[in-house]
Amino acid sequence: MRVTVRLFARLRELVGAGELSRNVAAGAVVAVVWDDLAREYPAISPYAGSMSCAVNAEYARMTTVVDEDDEVAFLPPVSGG
């Protein structure tokens, strides 16, 4: 099934795009979407423990199940002030 992945801040820069259409197995959880992306773009993998994620603009966990056409967002923390 297709999902839209949305990336912010440094993740967007490391992957080179803010929005990607990805194919994942039906019933996949957010962690599967992330792992799949991190395999293709290993530079993002150090962010795994500290970023937060959202499904359809609602805060989610890596264990949240995603559906067809869902939007999965990954947000790294930023600290500038």
Binding site: R10, P46, Y47, S50, M51, P76, V78, S79, G80
Partner: peptide, 21 residues
Amino acid sequence: RCLYPEPPPPGLVPSCAEGGV
């Protein structure tokens, strides 16, 4: 902390001085 329970490893996220703003 509800949003970001774990801090990033040091040096992973550039500051304004490092990354620009």
